[in-house]
Design a protein around this nucleic acid. Sequence first.
DNA 1: AGATACATGTAAATGGTTACATGATTCC
DNA 2: GGAATCATGTAACCATTTACATGTATCT
Lengths: 182, 182
Amino acid sequence: MALDHALLVALSEQPSSGLDLTRRFARSIGYFWPASHQQIYKVLGRMESEGWLEVTEVVQTGRPDKKVYAVTPAGADALAAWLATPTGVDAFRSEIAVKLRGASYGDRAAVLATVRDLLADHTLRLDHYTALAKRQFPDPGALHEAGREHELDQYLVLRGGVRLEEFWVGWLTEYLEAHDRD
Amino acid sequence: MALDHALLVALSEQPSSGLDLTRRFARSIGYFWPASHQQIYKVLGRMESEGWLEVTEVVQTGRPDKKVYAVTPAGADALAAWLATPTGVDAFRSEIAVKLRGASYGDRAAVLATVRDLLADHTLRLDHYTALAKRQFPDPGALHEAGREHELDQYLVLRGGVRLEEFWVGWLTEYLEAHDRD
DNA sequence: AGATACATGTAAATGGTTACATGATTCC
DNA sequence: GGAATCATGTAACCATTTACATGTATCT
């Protein structure tokens, strides 16, 4: 897949310009598929030339004009086809895991300091996502009503974000407790 | 970083040929930094020409000869320098997360089937890593003795693997329960 | 005039995946 | 002779990162 289908999902929710998309993406799907604006513009261009997107030049007053991208029927077909193909287990690449494993071959205090910083980061993120979930979805049980499937999906992906941060906070805490005891 | 430093950690533990390394890596550090044999051979060649590794041709009887790679002092320095540099939060890329978020734009039943397959996979992995931890580290408390830091690190990274699989099993289960109720 | 936000890109380099390739040796 | 395991790669492609580039409009 790569970025293409992630952008199709975002643009299916809401047609956008490159910059709008970059921003919205960073706060939603981009949490599970990070992308820079450079990369997003490139993929938008490619998808347009493939006929998956159509562009509308929007003239603005008080700011530069922009191009708004929307998913075409061909783009919707491509997205649906991709959603129907099975996916294997996601690869997971973690630089800090390699450092934890290799700490004996360098300055352990430096690795511990990095872990402390990361734990602070992830704790902040966890708080942030927990608050966001409570604000955006105060009554998750109600999302099971007919017609609210897409909201339910958004909620469940946010739950994944919360769970992922819980994983990090839990693991890094366990690491620090084990090593600070020495 | 990339693969380079992950291989330096693995070769610091034990000098190896490309094939040995590929296999050992897949069952340890490669869990947090996957790599194919093609990629590993390429990086080994690069690191050798940079002076981070030295090669010994080992003549074998009954099987083809092999090249055994070991970390040089320059390689050890490079590893130590990398361990001392701070690392930001690891990027996380998940194809299934994008599919969960986009399920409304395709065949939801197909996405649910994929999730069920993944849940089975991750459940197996969780069992596997839990059993491995129990077998390799029957008494984790004893790893706090002096001189066992590297074993403690290995244990704690394995704990990360267990926790990551728990994350997946927990999240995918929550997803299925939320959607199967409909 | 300078800082900031909006808006869209290009180019080069790095890293990783996929497909293909080759040869030795052992076991059946 | 054919399959399996050991052993080491090359080449082409694709995706991502990093550095650089340009111009508009608003606000102070």
